[in-house]
Amino acid sequence: MSLSRDEVEKIAHLARLAVRPEDLEGYARELSGILAFVEQMDAADTEGVTPMAHPVEASQRLRPDEPDEPDRRDRFQAIAPSVEAGLYLVPRVIE
């Protein structure tokens, strides 16, 4: 699979990464190389194989429904780039 500049641009947008126009070519080449490499997987016959999402066979553990987290807003917001009145600020969101 060879990626075009346009495809790289689309992927970068999906991933919210600003890529400079002059870097698109380079990324297209590198990503195409990586994809060509991973396509070695095609050699394997995986018909009927169950995908393995977790390395260990186990079930989800359940947590009792008890609130146990104190308010740590001041601590958390001390490391935030922009807050006001306890809110995180971002450029205006349009719905």
């Binding site: 009145a85 809110l87 995180y88 600020l89 450029p91």
Partner: peptide, 13 residues
């Protein structure tokens, strides 16, 4: 998202 005016910003709760 709270859209009241925070200097043209949106506040997130």
């Amino acid at each position: 998202s709270l859209h009241e005016d925070f200097h043209g910003m949106t506040g997130i709760d």
